[in-house]
Design a protein around this nucleic acid. Structure first.
Lengths: 199, 199
DNA sequence: CCGTTGGTTGACATTGTGTAAAGTATCAGC
DNA sequence: GCTGATACTTTACACAATGTCAACCAACGG
């Protein structure tokens, strides 16, 4: 997507992405520079530009790479396989709680950078759209099962679900406010159940 | 607060803050550099460092300045004067909808920068604590009037109210998702009413 | 007239991104 | 074995931005 695909997965490219992933996984460390990523991947700084258009491209590819390497797809189908709409929503919150810690730092960097980079902004929107589709799907299921509060317009409900389950919300509550993952899950599940659905 | 006060309000200092305010108010423009702020204030770049420790200090002082120049205090007492807890919460959402557009850009910059600057992080936390106190006050009133859902721990409810009424949420919904201010208000009020309170 | 205050100018160090050019090693295919 | 492509390296540079430093200047109060 970011890369013309084809020979998209050379060994070094992967090494670079893994290095970036590693560096970004350390919650204490500051967001790494291109130099730092290059060193961690044991590669010259210039090599990064052979594989990625620019810093934004690299970071974005890193998020995709994290998605691929984790069991994201698995998590998604677990959500879909839920017996009913409410359980699906609960599982979705669980999925967010599971993925967020791995993405939080990258997400923060990208989000901060997107304002000044049209390409990045587009890619970011694209990514957000993916998550939003999932939210829309959940809202659809709520409607089908007659559980969405009648006051809600489906699109508004989707956006709100999307917002409340954002990485950002997770970060504010779990990192900044030091909530436990369990506390996060129950609180968010609760506010969504009562806020969006009937009982 | 940021500045030792005393001769805290020289004419140039104010001119600088107003210039920064002006530049940051333009939603289209990118976040201004020190150079740009200096030019807009019709002052040398070095003069900025005469009045503010660094970029972070300047931006932070700018937020305070925006608060002072706006009718924030007025808005706050309007919230406090509400007839009952629910009305107070609704008014609070209205206040957020009113202030957010003016602060959004500065907030975004500061939030992005705080990770790499301990001083800024501290000042930011301090600021956040202020908003959080207001949320806590609202939750207290909900409890007094017996309107907080019994499942909620007061602190958790406070944090969630704080999170959902964050500038960030406003920005995501109104700017990114292009909601109207009214849509924002009704949706957030609704999710808070049902999510946190009884009817 | 002196010194302090608040400002100016200009130069500089540093860090970061991105570009460019030239060299090197390895491997495929003729 | 030579040729050429591919992948990467090294070195160098341009550019933007923050922050520091030193010297200079002008006004104003004692």
């Amino acid at each position: 997507m970011t890369q013309p695909a084809g020979r998209g997965s050379s060994a070094t490219r992967r090494r670079i992405l893994e290095a970036a992933h590693r560096l970004l996984s350390d919650p204490a460390a500051p967001v790494p520079s291109m130099q730092a990523i290059a060193e961690a991947a044991d590669v010259s700084r210039q090599a990064l530009y052979l594989h990625f258009r620019d810093r934004a491209g690299l970071l974005l590819a890193t998020v995709d790479h994290i998605d691929d390497s984790g069991d994201l797809a698995e998590g998604v189908s677990f959500v879909r396989d839920a017996p009913d709409a409410l359980a699906a929503m609960d599982r979705f919150v669980g999925l967010v709680a599971w993925t967020s810690p791995r993405i939080a730092d990258v997400a923060r960097t990208l989000d901060a950078a997107r304002a000044s980079d049209p390409d990045l902004e587009a890619a970011w929107q694209d990514r957000m759209a993916g998550r939003r589709r999932m939210c829309r799907e959940l809202v659809g299921r709520l409607i089908d099962e007659g559980r969405l509060r009648p006051e809600w317009d489906p699109d508004a409900a989707t956006d709100l679900l999307w917002e409340i389950t954002s990485v950002r919300t997770w970060e504010d509550l779990v990192v900044d406010r030091e909530w436990s993952p369990e506390a996060y899950m129950t609180a968010v599940q609760r506010v969504l159940r009562h806020g969006l659905t009937t009982v």
